[in-house]
Amino acid sequence: MKILVAVKRVIDYNVKVRPKADGSDVDLANVKMAINPFCEIAVEEAVRLKEAGTATEIVAVSIGPKQAQEQIRTALALGADRGIHVETDARMEPLAVAKTLKALIEKESPDLIIMGKQSIDADNNQTGQMLGALTAMPQGTFASEVKVADGKVAVTREVDGGLQTVELNLPAIVTTDLRLNEPRYASLPNIMKAKKKPLDTTTPDELGVSTEARVNLLKVELPPERQAGIKVPDVDTLVDKLKNEAKVI
């Protein structure tokens, strides 16, 4: 079984994000970048499937600037077998990413596509679903457990009411939630070995995908600073304040 894993280059989750002075976008100058945490979980899941003997090959894909190869190398160090970099400096929206992935799926014919449910930069949570629609593949989103057997994948999903398990025919798309697994650290020898693993590059143009933006980014600004809260002596005061001051009940 062949698995395609999508990984995205995003601002490291430990970095305090700031807008540019003119508010035109997030300031990325000299900011530490890393693999999106949900994508890392996706890689880990693929590697576990390979270690269990279920998967035979893992292809890691990233779409983005030249430096996105660093995130592919990270995926290779974690255990992916080869990488594909779709190089573009365009601001890729979920639909463009889904179309690009679809083009790669047509070339690679994976049995399973694992990707993060969303990226921590734009928090769109759309790409997996759009890819499902474009490819007409079944999708299991927000996975907290993935079991592959007999040409099917059972995905336990974290939904508002609890857990829901769906069974999908392969090939299928799985998007990962936080509790699916705890990704390993890439070992230093594996980082070294990853240098030698194959990494192909292509472009959206070559794949025949338009990267044209459909959403205009107007302004990026910090949320208003939160006012300090107050302590109330008892429940009655709380209810009174909610009713009469906050007017929410």
Binding site: A34, Q69, E70, R73, T74, A77, Y185, A186, L188, I191, M192, A194, K195
Partner: peptide
């Protein structure tokens, strides 16, 4: 690039 990855892994660990 290789060194950055090593340093990243170590600093994260």
């Amino acid at each position: 690039e290789f060194l950055n990855q090593i340093l990243d892994t170590i600093s994260r660990f």
